[in-house]
Nucleic acid binder design. Structure first.
Lengths: 215, 215
DNA sequence: GCCACACTAGACTGTCCAGTATGATGTCGT
DNA sequence: ACGACATCATACTGGACAGTCTAGTGTGGC
């Protein structure tokens, strides 16, 4: 988006990062309209003019920040995953996967990003689409690939792995995520609750899609 | 919250309603900070002063609007529900219930209310708590009561009807709701997709909690 | 030594907006 | 007819804030 050709900013990279960090904090806690560029400047220990030299406008800075955060978050979830070994337990494998995803998605910073983007759907619809694609959709795609392999090995009985992946994803995520969206970060389950929740989600999923013939 | 004692506003009730209607529209489409009191005044065909006579401040008006909308929405979902007859099909009964809930929750106005409140969690945390209680929590409580009766009749096998109710609720709601939150109202399933979605949600639920003994 | 450039502090412009003030008009009950 | 009150149009106050401007400082390369 920004003028990518001319950036002989070798020296200024530290300032650039400082602005990004400060903008992240301020936008996340105050929202787009509630954010004040003077505050970002002072929080990053930089003059206001420098902020405007690096990012042309409040809107450009906002888009940059949110865009990069959604990318980073997606990358952190996406990750080398072991294949299910021949003797391994399917339930345990799914639980480990789901616990990892859920732990990342319920990090306070990501929850707040989600709230921010949802609140700005009216003003920045593209942003929310990108967050959906790099968040839930990407997770579902990955689960789909995993389910395809499991199905070939006869460990899952589903006609449509993509649909099964979506059910799995929301079985795991929906309750904690929706509670946290509205009740605040304090409503995020602790490690024990998280494991219980995931275990039950996997049980339900396997009751409907497990290797036994479907009813 | 408002000074409830003195309101000899018989004459002014129409204006009061006009303000409420206009404020609803404007807050829903522009957000709290993006909303301008002059616009509300002109949209309701009322002078700005009158707005301030009826509602003391922007914040008070906002709280009133959002509070009343969450109440109304809850009431519309809560509703006389037939008991399951002795010869009736459990799946069909659950599907009818779920379709009704999902149709209401995915109305554009309610989706937008949800986005608004989520975006303002930082500024108005109480509002979001109230919306959660009168929305998802109230639905879950109702489903819990229903499941208790079903369990007594041997039609459901679950140790904890409240937990089962939460799973049921999110099986039905999660995918459409989360897609709609970020992808916009156009992503809401049409009537055909909605029925398919609900049918599959109920199938999954009954595979895990149906009358057959649990695995 | 000098140019180019990243940066700084702070003043300034223009605009938007919540909330108030003013002074007049209509309408009800008595 | 009169007083109480809801309402009106409009102007105003005070503060916030995006974005620009100015004038100057430090620092690297040549």
């Amino acid at each position: 988006m920004a003028q990518a050709g001319a950036r002989p900013w070798a020296r200024s990279d530290a300032k650039h990062q400082a602005i990004v960090r400060a903008a992240r904090e301020v936008f996340l806690s105050n929202g787009y309209l509630g954010t004040n560029m003077d505050l970002i400047a002072s929080r990053s220990g930089v003059s206001k003019q420098t902020v405007y030299t690096h990012f042309g406008s409040k809107e450009a800075l906002f888009l940059e920040i949110v865009g990069s955060m959604t990318g980073d978050a997606g990358d952190r979830v996406h990750h080398e995953r072991p294949e299910l070994g021949d003797g391994d337990d399917l339930g345990a494998y799914l639980r480990a996967f789901a616990e990892r995803q859920l732990r990342i998605v319920t990090e306070p910073e990501l929850l707040q990003l989600r709230r921010l983007v949802i609140g700005e759907v009216g003003r920045f619809p593209e942003l929310a689409k990108v967050l959906y694609e790099r968040g839930p959709q990407r997770a579902i795609d990955e689960i789909t690939a995993m389910f395809q392999r499991l199905r070939e090995r006869g460990l899952l009985s589903c006609d449509d792995p993509a649909a099964a992946a979506e059910w799995f994803n929301w079985l795991v995520m929906a309750a904690p995520l929706n509670r946290a969206m509205m009740l605040g970060d304090a409503a995020v389950p602790d490690e024990g609750d998280l494991r219980e929740h995931v275990a039950e989600a996997v049980r339900i999923f396997l009751a409907a899609f497990g290797p036994a013939p479907r009813s």
